[in-house]
Design a protein around this nucleic acid. Structure first.
Lengths: 237, 237
DNA sequence: CTTCACAGGTCAATGCTGTTGTCATAAGCT
DNA sequence: AGCTTATGACAACAGCATTGACCTGTGAAG
């Protein structure tokens, strides 16, 4: 049996589809991303993607082993777009802060795709590039290997976790999102001081805070803790 | 047109299915939870749930408007179970650590439900109780209101973010999860030192770390940063 | 004790979904 | 010019959530 998917390196022919489109891995991924951001995550089906490309759905299986494989390629492309614009400046804490904020923002610009891919390990070029870059920043800063790996893991998963959370919220249908805003302004604001003293005392602050993401706060706290560890480690090797 | 779903209050008849099972909302939710933990998240389909209950799949639509409605009922039951077991002991840092770990573990025990519900604001009793409790712990520890709210927000969203992330991974079909393990052991382990020095230098540590969740690490770093802030604030009011 | 409305279980059908075996054809190498 | 084979297309399959129509027996009312 010949393999259905031919590795990109061995591809030779660029045969157009009946509708005249020349398929490629890049075109498929780009179209998938467009489909997701235009019509929502549930719009991404093999059939619809084939239709949007002007190709038979089964043709996509010449490029990806299955739908999950395609999803990973989409996720990796998103990482790549963020990484391509990040320029580390030499200050580890500022660099990681910048990268984290960029990844979070990048994820939120395609919330539907983020919801489907934030928790995936792609093993593809861009993801590998990100791992190498972050580890490089941490090791370059003087973190011992074990500590660098621990902090890398906490950093990347905090970032991806917030990305998934905030993207999930952003991807909610309009009505549901507005209903949640109302919960803070009405349900929580109306709780009596006798039964819920702490909420009653802080509800204006609370409602204001919950409107935005806590990612910057969490990121800064994470980096502050990392800096404290680094100071302790470098003082007594 | 008569409504398919009859509100629980108006239910009267407990007619057994062909296989002699008397259905109820509670039985269906409990069976769904059992199905998820016994056979994995992907085992929860309307067809399989119907089969496990000994009823026609379409019967479930007499109790839930659709599959998502059923999932939310399952998620709601989970929240109740976690909060019912948490007992704060007076040490703010230990209490928050305990609650965070419990919430994370609870979410992971039913990943499918978590994926669909982690980013939602319910405004229901258990959620309100959690907000009040966490704010109480922080204010009781001496955090000023603004600081308490900031840390509350970072704490709860870090926890929910990791819950979503790790649950998303746990909810993956068996094959996909094993494929991701393989990526760390093979793809990352095989990268040459020349092009990826930092990964090559740390790959055993990396592969070991990525097997588990970084939540405990991230949580401890968050709490450490919070403690540092508290020390600074109480020193100079 | 009978009647009868209707809750609720079942069946069959619909239109999705991902996926694959098979075939046809044109691209590009020799 | 001819051959190989990459790659697009077609048709079919199993499994998915969901729904309209049907039918049965429960439980309350008279």
């Amino acid at each position: 049996m010949t393999e259905r998917v031919v590795p990109p390196a061995r591809r030779r022919r660029r045969r157009p589809t009946k509708q005249g489109v020349v398929l490629s891995e890049e075109l498929i991924v780009a179209t998938a991303l467009r489909l997701i951001s235009e019509h929502g995550a549930e719009a991404l089906t093999v059939r619809r993607l084939g239709h949007a490309l002007g190709a038979d759905p089964s043709s996509l299986y010449r490029y990806f082993r299955n739908a999950d494989d395609l999803m990973l390629a989409v996720a990796d492309e998103m990482i790549g777009r963020v990484l391509r614009e990040w320029r580390p400046g030499g200050d580890w804490r500022a660099d990681l802060r910048d990268l984290g904020l960029r990844m979070h923002a990048g994820a939120l610009s395609h919330p539907q795709a983020t919801v489907l891919s934030a928790y995936r390990v792609t093993g593809r070029v861009h993801e590998i590039g990100a791992v190498e870059a972050i580890l490089g920043v941490l090791r370059g800063a003087g973190f011992p290997d074990a500590e660098a790996v621990r902090i890398y893991h906490a950093f990347i998963d905090t970032t991806l976790g917030f990305a998934a959370l905030d993207a999930g919220n952003a991807a909610l249908p309009r009505a549901a999102r507005e209903a949640e805003q109302r919960v803070w302004r009405e349900t929580y604001a109306g709780l009596p001081e006798e039964t819920h003293p702490h909420i009653a005392a802080t509800v204006p602050l609370l409602a204001a805070s919950m409107r935005g993401s806590a990612y910057p706060t969490a990121l800064d706290m994470l980096l502050a803790a990392a800096a404290a560890r680094l100071a302790r480690v470098t003082r007594e090797p």
